[in-house]
Design a protein around this nucleic acid. Sequence first.
DNA 1: CTGAAAGCGCTAACAG
DNA 2: CTGTTAGCGCTTTCAG
Lengths: 349, 349
Amino acid sequence: MAKQPGRGFEGVALPTAYDVATRAGVSQSAVSRAFTEGASIAPATRQRILKAATELGYRPNNIARSLITRQSKTIGVVVGYLENQFYPQLLQALSYAFQAEGYRLLLFTNPPGGAPGGDEPVVEDMLNYRVDAVILASVMLSSHFADECRAAGIPVLLLNRKTDSPAVSSVTGDNEAGPRAIANYLLAMGHRRFGYVAGLESSSTSRDREAAFRAVLEPQGFQVVRAVGHYDFAAAKLATRALLASGQAPDAIFYANDHMALAGLEAARFEFGLVPGQDLSIVGFDNVGAAAWSSFDLTTYSQPIDRMVPIVVRAVLDQMANPQGEPVRAVVEGGLIIRGSSRGPKPRA
Amino acid sequence: MAKQPGRGFEGVALPTAYDVATRAGVSQSAVSRAFTEGASIAPATRQRILKAATELGYRPNNIARSLITRQSKTIGVVVGYLENQFYPQLLQALSYAFQAEGYRLLLFTNPPGGAPGGDEPVVEDMLNYRVDAVILASVMLSSHFADECRAAGIPVLLLNRKTDSPAVSSVTGDNEAGPRAIANYLLAMGHRRFGYVAGLESSSTSRDREAAFRAVLEPQGFQVVRAVGHYDFAAAKLATRALLASGQAPDAIFYANDHMALAGLEAARFEFGLVPGQDLSIVGFDNVGAAAWSSFDLTTYSQPIDRMVPIVVRAVLDQMANPQGEPVRAVVEGGLIIRGSSRGPKPRA
DNA sequence: CTGAAAGCGCTAACAG
DNA sequence: CTGTTAGCGCTTTCAG
């Protein structure tokens, strides 16, 4: 009947492999093998053990297993702003993909409205949980943390952002080709006055997108006025207002992401009475679900989650298998998706 | 220099409490105490240990700690459809609130587009991780799973849904008063032909909301036509189309949640050329962020996340402290939020 | 194929 | 206040 130290129904301990062993008349190690894929055990023995286990309501304790295998089968994920639909979509896809590989996600979120920088102690704490890898999909985290993970021997992957350090793996959308495609498209549609709404100034992603956008326009003599939206809906509305209220208002605005572009669309339409796709062009980046909704019909450059996630999974798995391996720095190509929010010939209109 | 069995930078093992003990010239248990809140240890000793720990880059291994304390400090959360903005909002709030209590969330998601019923083996697997409690915020899960958790002695809490079993704790919005308030409001605004768009037929939440809605209207002799939106955006559009295309089209439609109401709004506006708030009234439930966006301006009944989450946290904490305690069955009051999508006098218009 | 034995890294009595 | 001593529940050689 074993000891009974623990919790469990009615204060009785959960059965252990020993209990199962006793009941099945085998050794405890046999029980272990019965629950280990591909372990050498006679089918008959295995059946007997499995039967005893079910009768007892036994479940292998993954904590104990982790302690000895040194694998928690857990991946720490830090996400920031879940208001931006891109992140829930990403999170769901990641969760599902890693579940298929036998990993689960331990979730860490930044405090709502938290300022960038300042590593949260809670996130530090994630390392104590011996996560097998860490995925950082939050802008709100100093890159110092990535180094700390590396020092602890834990693979890190930056998703949708980068660091200066080329030693850290990252997977991003095409922050170079995307903005260039957008710029060229806007030029072709006859625009001449451009605006850019940045995310956070500290964000490499926002900076890269802006640089690529300008790299097309400025050599041709076009100015790009800018405002900062901090990746926030309300702030992006304010930024849009500032841009549109100025004397030389742009007639084409590129936003660092869809989330802000949606806000811009609303500001233009409801505060200025403008008709996007006619009076001005509004373009985002990501192609989130809502971008395709009729209310927005947002032209954007896609960051294809279904193509990014497998790359992330493989990269993380590889890094875990071979910590000495080369870091991955993947850029996942997207595509320009022309919808109604921008001026010019529409796909089918 | 200790053994070197494990991973870690360059294949060297991470330092253990023993390594720190040796370096600080104390016993291993002293190290343990140095890292345990409120343990009896001399400040000087503690300082010395902490110093040695930092020098070695030591981090306490929570896995080992969990094994002995029988607490993983981890809560399993099952969420389904993250497209519905309500869930990311909820998830973020839960994550933050539990982090403050020293718990982390282990995330489980249903497969994208997964059918209801059928307990995913992956979710079963969560119990092997010895999560300290389970929060189910997914409709896509047979209630059988809740019993299984209870059998394993793990507190379960259903969020935004219920079971027949009164033994299981749950926290929901006001699925009784909310729909009644909506029905009364719509009546007062002069509506006479009503529609309801259900979520999943198997969902207690959707059934409760429909029943309460009808409970006001039918006794007064009004019919409620219905369609099923499966909590899905596209399906809700189809449902709306079906309702509006019929001979006796309703001029007031209540949706089981905002996510579907948003879809309904689009269908009415872009497929039927109707002006919501004028030609017909569209009402949702939840008050998600997007409901307040100008593009939707959706009248709804709120399910206040900031009031629900503390109740969830307390309930879960209580159940863990006292597994024998009474289950919690909290109904969190919301409020009718009248916006432009419904006919009648607007708050300030 | 199976059992015995030795821990994984840490916490928790129990003496001192 | 601190060290000693047992394990937590399981995986993993190593014999047999």
